[in-house]
Design a protein around this nucleic acid. Structure first.
Lengths: 193, 193
DNA sequence: TATGATAATAAACTTGGTGTTGATTAATCG
DNA sequence: CGATTAATCAACACCAAGTTTATTATCATA
């Protein structure tokens, strides 16, 4: 993420970002015009074009930042290779907490009228991080079907995570991580073909 | 689905539908203009407005038809309540076959730059049909977490199905249904908390 | 196959968002 | 403070959107 020195730029981008989230809660991205977006947050339309080419470009920038942030949150976490695995999964906990701290934007991007490409990128990140944590627990003889099993598990986790956001996060991040944990240990443990 | 008597209308709608799929394989729906769409299939722009209000309206109509068709395919299937459960799940087989027979459109709607709302509707259908088939096999004491387990399973199945479409359907529908079956019987069977 | 109905076309038009430009004002940083 | 740079404002050309009307082509069917 580029370090922005000028306070004016920070304010402008934050205003546009906030307005976009509010608009996306009510309508899909296609229906949002640059004009409407700028009026919403009282930013001159010319100023918008100073930073972004169009509404989708703005969304892409936001998504890119989110992905970098998510990666950063999971990056600094080093696997305790010799320690016994913690329960619930620390990575799952971190993911849920990250979502909670960016709830509005995440709900908009991951649920209802969200961006499918973005969901796929999140799946990719979760897949890598999560599988590296779990590979010691999973007795996988890497056959043809293993990939589909991974896909199943990751998609299932993302689905739960979407449902949680959609319902307004009624449970805590830790509770959610435990629910996922429960499903995995009692379900996936026997998934070794 | 409305029964269209006039051949001209059928041809027009089919042409627009085909052109939309082709365009959506290359770009996202937001980038497709009515002008471009009509030029692609050599339909007068006025003719388009005779049937649809805009590109999204056209897409919605297509989605609605697809959902009705999917429902119809699964509807006429009556559960053999007294018979032993078939393997692999007949419902899963039908779903995979339905996808295969509408592969281009399904891949466009369910994968990469697809429509998240549409995916959610498919999830809803699969959830109802599939769970009614499986409820006899699942020992569920309908507690708080059961809903999340269902979400996990359905999302996992949809994820596999997306992956299959994305890869160009390298396996047959029956093979895929068996893979899902395998994951469920060795994984979900023990999911009764 | 003739005919009344209706779908598709073509051309012309208004509207409104888009994207750009250049000049001016305001805020920031050092 | 002073230099720099961001934000604003007004004006502009452009083009897709959406509508309208008249005309042509196609269809269903008696």
């Amino acid at each position: 993420m580029d370090k922005i020195t000028d306070r004016r730029v920070r304010k402008t981008k934050a205003a546009l970002r906030g307005a976009l989230v509010k608009l996306m809660e009510k309508k899909s991205i296609q229906e949002i015009s640059v004009k409407e977006l700028c009026e919403k947050c009282d930013i001159n339309r010319s100023t918008f074009y100073l930073h972004y080419t169009d509404v989708y470009n703005l969304l892409q920038m936001i998504e890119k930042e989110m992905l970098l942030e998510l990666n950063a949150v999971l990056e600094d976490f080093e696997l305790p290779k010799n320690k016994p695995q913690a329960s619930p999964s620390p990575i799952m906990c971190k993911i849920f907490k990250f979502l909670a701290s960016n709830a509005d934007m995440c709900r908009v991007l991951l649920c209802n009228n969200g961006d499918m490409a973005f969901v796929e990128e999140v799946k990719g990140i979760v897949r890598i991080k999560f599988m590296s944590e779990w590979q010691s627990r999973i007795n996988s003889s890497a056959n043809e079907q293993t990939e589909y099993v991974y896909t199943f598990i990751i998609s299932g986790c993302i689905g739960i995570l979407q449902e949680w956001l959609r319902r307004g996060m009624p449970k805590s991040a830790d509770e959610m991580a435990q629910i996922v944990e429960k499903i995995l240990v009692s379900g996936v443990a026997s998934l070794s073909f």
